[in-house]
Simulated assay, not measured.
Amino acid sequence: MKLVKPDAPQPPNVVQFIVSMQMSKYDIENYLEKIYNVQVENVVTHVRMGKCERSFKGYITKKDDYKVAFVTLPRTEKFEFPTLFPESKQEKENEELKQLDVLQDEWNSNTRRHKHRHGVPTWFGV
């Protein structure tokens, strides 16, 4: 079983998993209750078709089909998908993007100053 972040917004007590094609609803419910001690209200499963892709040689390949299980927990329990990238990392990435913009502005100003010498490095001054 693999916990998956849902594509569409779900109620707080619904969790989405990708499970083996051989697992039934009862297997999923028993697995979560016996191993993880999680109370399960309802299980809904869907079989999704794998994507078809065309390779560079013209062959068409199809990914394997997979089963998605939507597990409904009791109303008192809420599940939040864990945040993998905390705010501090987001702020750090924003600072790096700002630095990248400053460097790109400097590069553009240098290339505008030497616009008649395309391909010549800036350290090669006359």
Results as ranks from 00 to 15, higher is better:
A69Q: 01
F56K: 01
I28H: 06
Y31E: 10
L100R: 12
D65G: 08
S88K: 03
S55M: 12
M49D: 13
K92P: 00
K57E: 11
Y26W: 10
Y59M: 13
Y66S: 09
I28N: 02
T83C: 05
L100I: 11
L32G: 01
P82A: 01
C52R: 14
Q90D: 07
N37M: 13
I28Q: 03
I60H: 04
D27I: 10
Y26I: 15
I35E: 09
F79C: 07
T76K: 12
V102W: 00
E77H: 04
K89N: 12
D27W: 03
S24G: 15
E29L: 15
V40I: 15
E29I: 14
R75S: 09
V68P: 01
K98Y: 02
E29N: 02
H46M: 15
P74L: 01
F85V: 14
N94A: 10
V102N: 03
L103N: 06
S24Y: 07
Y66W: 06
E96I: 08
K57D: 12
V38L: 00
V71C: 01
Q90E: 11
K51A: 15
E87S: 03
L103Q: 03
D27C: 05
I28Y: 01
G58R: 05
E33H: 10
R48C: 14
T76F: 00
I60K: 09
F81P: 00
S88Q: 08
P82N: 14
E41W: 06
I60G: 00
K25M: 13
E41L: 12
D101K: 05
D27N: 12
V71H: 02
